[in-house]
Nucleic acid binder design. Structure first.
Length: 878
RNA sequence: GGGCGGUUAGCUCAGCUGGCUAGAGCGCCUCGUUUACACCGAGGAGGCCGGGGGUUCGACUCCCUCACCGCCCACCA
């Protein structure tokens, strides 16, 4: 990099024309006014509209499409803040950025929300009819969809809204159908009767991942089945006695000596009288219950598999609404399962077939959308074969084509893929993407994106389209490329796929992220993104789930209204990559509002000082400036912060960037630099002013990805022509400005000032009660700085200007009121410290084993402490 | 049942590959109407880093183990 020089504005530039703006700055930062202004200006300037023809390297993110089930919550805001910080950062590092927004129709979830709404109004979707319900859906989508986009705008999300997508848009629907047909033609999409998780309320199948397991305390019933041709019995254990009506067999473990003689014989099903073969199967656990299992292939996944192995008949004993379907048993037929359970138990008891019961705790599956207890049920469903897709995904991972942040989540994905089963993609809902399969009158079946006029096999024109719809995640899985125009070969698709980043909550790693990966690999031949960020889950302040129904939800708009979008964003970015769940912490958000206000006022201070070039210590405009020690210090610190911020972002640890900026901006710049340079600024010293402006300039750039509004506002108030920050280059550290000597000196100066302040406070002498003397080794410059910062009167002569200041060299005499106490406390602290270090150094093992630089460091520390103690003991008085 | 994460100041959280006196914000105490900021400034109190073992010259950091909290995965009825 070129040698750096501080630009001194000519006397004509600088304040001219900016005076009014400065004077116009209120004493407090008012976020809402500033935010809406910039949102509008950014949009008007079309800053976030991506250009696929740009020669710049691209960077793309597909916004995880929020479900159109309701408004955005704190988790969305957090994720939005993280992605936006990346998008803005990448623009500043010279990338053509596409951050593409959209929403997800969320079939089952939305249908549930609407059904609940209808229920509150005392009606049902059936009463309403399909068409009226569809209208309701469209209305809902447009109103909620608009709210969501508005919320993202308020957050400051730099989305390309010209490319807004919705999973129910015609073009997207086409992509979904094309994808289905693609799998179908590959032979991986098949239909068949299988046992699935059935929700009797939604009246639909759901996938394994949509099962919400809850612990239930139930009763385990022991029922004895008589053995045919004798007076023996076999006793089975079950928690769902009502399903025995659909039993096909009794199974025991082949190695179980207790039952070996029964295998091959038959048991008689109580209450029903059906003959059940007694079979041997490895899946039966000898330890559980009695070691004998009633086999009900129609109503239990394990039994279903046993049934398949042994060719057992599948008896479907239940209707889709959860009532029993046993026409041969009129006593139970048509009744709800729960009632039948009681009836069956009572009947068994009467027959003497119920041996005993015991309490039993186990996991019961619920529908994760409506909470209803699921029934394993056999029905005709569509499945996507997962074997090859899983293998492709695992391979991509092993090749290191996707990087997870934090890394450990890669295992979540791999573990799931390694044990994966075929994906049940069909749903029996009103809402969703219709499965693009057609059946002709002659029993032929085929898949097609567009409804064909006739059956391609027999020419029959009477075609029936499949009524099932697709799992909503099937369409979500196509998001990174379907949003770019796939299956058309669009310019966007060619330019922006694969995307670079996906940021998501860990709860949908397998539901969504994994499925995007295999979909991308299959249809596009490449991973859908290079990096995956899994952000923290935001909890309510009390640690509970944030949820509207619990009353623990916090609307991001409320937070933004009170503290500003920047404050919410800074907090979200600072906690978003935490390894654990994070509680909503208003006090910290508030502190970032304070930070924004601090920057506002610091800028106000810097800009309010009228510039008087004649005061300049330097030779004049255009020449290298003569920097004060404080100037050199803050510029050196600025370089360090620039490095830290960049490293934080690039290392997927943006919290480090935020911490560094907060510490630097508030404490180093405002508390120390501005306090030190205040007098010079007020005097109109152009060097101080140019330095301060230089720092603010860089600080605003560095902070812009995290706090876009305040930085944009203040940046534009700085002198000179100012483009939008996303079009301004990301700062690079300037080595020439790094000055470790001045940093060490200034650090010592800070310590001295702190000692003086503490002494004064402890001495309780106050400014009026005593005077402080500072030793003769200080330079005039340091002496002046200390005097100003510590607000002490400097007495005595400042000594040789050549001597650097170091703590311990400056002699400080304490006020007469309480010198002994204060001094002995300092003495005691140093003595204890020295003792510890000497103990360490006295340890032979330490000297032999520890690295040389560590030992040297400790020795240096000891020497320093001894010197300091010596000086204090000596007690040089003025 | 398997896996992962967490347990650090009163509260919410940082602490990267083991090494200066373990940090921040809020809260608390004391002081301050200094012309950027009370959405402020200065000073301060407060932590056997969940328990126990181990490795190491040295452990908040690595290993083992226990306890509790949370999440994900899982076909023992």
């Amino acid at each position: 990099p070129q040698a750096w020089s501080l630009h001194l504005p000519s006397s004509d530039a600088g304040m001219n024309g900016k005076d009014d703006q400065t004077a116009g700055m209120a004493a407090a930062f008012d976020p809402p006014a500033v935010e809406s202004n910039w949102s509008r200006r950014w949009e008007e300037a079309r800053l976030f509209v991506a250009d696929p023809d740009s020669p710049k390297p691209k960077f793309s993110i597909a916004l995880p499409p929020p479900n159109v089930t309701g408004e955005l919550h704190m988790g969305h805001a957090t994720n939005g803040a993280i992605q936006d910080a990346w998008a803005r950062y990448r623009r500043m590092t010279g990338h053509e950025v596409l951050w593409l927004p959209g929403t997800d129709h969320a079939a089952i979830a939305t249908q549930n929300v609407l059904e609940k709404q209808l229920a509150r109004e005392g009606t049902t979707k059936e009463a309403l009819g399909r068409d009226a319900f569809d209208e309701l859906v469209v209305e809902w989508y447009s109103s909620v969809g608009a709210t969501i986009i508005a919320q993202l705008r308020v957050l400051g999300a730099s989305l390309d809204t010209t490319r807004l997508r919705f999973t129910m848009d015609a073009q997207y629907v086409r992509a979904v159908r094309t994808a289905f047909v693609g799998y179908y033609e590959k032979g991986w999409m098949y239909r068949g009767p299988r046992i699935v998780n059935w929700c009797p309320r939604c009246q639909s199948a759901i996938s394994d991942l949509e099962v919400d397991w809850q612990t239930h305390l139930d009763t385990l019933y022991f029922v004895r089945y008589p053995i045919e041709g004798g007076d023996e019995f076999v006793t089975i254990a079950t928690v769902r006695p009502e399903t025995m009506l659909a039993d096909s067999a009794v199974a025991v473990n082949p190695g179980d000596e207790r039952y070996r003689h029964l295998v091959g014989r038959h048991a008689i099903l109580p209450l029903v009288g059906r003959r059940l073969p007694i079979i041997a199967d490895e899946a039966v656990e000898t330890q559980f219950g009695t070691g004998a299992l009633k086999v009900t292939p129609g109503h239990d996944p394990l039994d279903y598999e046993i049934g398949e192995r042994h060719g057992l008949p599948i008896i479907n004993g239940m209707n889709p609404n959860g009532s029993m379907n046993v026409p041969d048993l009129p006593r139970y037929h048509g009744l709800p399962a729960a009632e039948v359970r009681n009836l069956v138990v009572a009947d068994l008891e009467r027959e003497g077939a119920l041996v005993r019961t015991e309490p039993y705790s186990h996991e019961v599956g619920h529908c994760d959308r409506c909470g209803t207890v699921l029934e394993p049920l056999v029905s005709e469903q569509w499945f996507l074969r997962m074997k090859e897709l899983a293998a492709m995904s695992i391979q991509a991972s092993e090749q290191g084509r996707i990087h997870w942040h934090p890394e450990r989540y890669e295992r979540t994905y791999l573990d799931w893929l390694r044990g994966i089963r075929d994906w049940c993609v069909s749903r029996q809902l009103w809402l969703g993407h219709r499965i693009p399969v057609f059946y002709c009158a002659n029993g032929h079946q085929f898949a097609a994106v567009d409804a064909p006029p006739a059956c391609p096999q027999c020419g029959a024109t009477e075609l029936r389209e499949e009524t099932d719809v697709l799992d909503t995640w099937f369409s979500s899985a196509l998001w990174p490329f379907a949003t770019l125009g796939w299956p058309e070969k669009t310019v966007d698709l060619a330019h922006f796929y694969p995307t670079d980043l996906n940021s998501t909550d860990r709860g949908i790693i397998n539901l969504w992220v994994t499925r995007m990966i295999f979909s991308g690999l299959f249809f596009m031949g490449d991973v859908p993104f290079r990096d995956v960020i899994i952000h923290a889950t935001i909890q309510a302040a009390d640690g509970r789930r944030m949820s509207k129904s619990l009353g623990t939800g916090v609307d991001p708009r409320d937070t933004i209204a009170r503290f500003g979008a920047d404050a919410l964003r800074a907090w979200a970015v600072a906690v978003g990559m935490s390894s654990q769940d994070v509680r909503y912490d208003e006090s910290r958000i508030k502190s970032f509002r304070g930070f924004a206000n601090k920057l506002w006022n610091a800028t106000r201070l810097v800009l309010s000082a009228a510039e008087r070039p004649e005061v300049s210590a330097g030779p004049g405009p255009g020449s290298p400036a003569k920097l004060d020690m404080a100037d050199r210090w803050i510029l050196s610190r600025l370089q360090a912060v620039t490095r830290q911020v960049t490293e934080g972002i690039e290392g997927y640890a943006m919290q480090r960037s935020v911490d560094a900026l907060y510490e630097f901006g508030w404490h180093e710049f405002c508390d120390w630099y501005l306090e030190a340079a205040k007098a010079r600024l007020r005097d109109g010293d152009p060097v101080a002013r140019a330095t301060a402006i230089q720092v603010l300039d860089t600080l605003f750039r560095l902070l812009h990805p995290v706090m876009p509004f305040i930085t944009e506002e203040l940046w534009h108030r700085l002198p000179g022509d100012r483009d939008f920050l996303v079009r301004v280059a990301w700062p690079q550290p300037v080595d020439a400005l790094t000055d470790s000597a001045v940093e060490a000196e200034f650090a010592a100066l800070i310590r001295l000032v702190e000692e003086i302040r503490a002494a004064r406070q402890a001495g309780r002498t106050g400014a009026a009660g005593g005077r402080l003397w500072v030793g003769e080794v200080m330079t005039p410059e340091t002496s002046r700085l200390v005097a100003g910062l510590a607000r002490v009167e400097m007495v005595g002569e400042a000594g040789s200007a050549a001597q650097p200041l170091a703590w311990g060299e400056a002699r400080l005499e304490l006020p007469a009121a309480a010198p002994a106490g204060v001094r002995s406390a300092e003495l005691g602290r140093l003595e204890a410290e020295l003792e510890k270090v000497e103990l360490k150094l006295g340890n032979a093992a330490f000297r032999e084993r520890a690295p040389a630089e560590i030992v040297a460091k400790e020795e240096g520390k000891a020497a320093e402490l001894r010197a300091a103690l010596g000086r204090i003991r000596e007690g040089r008085a003025p």
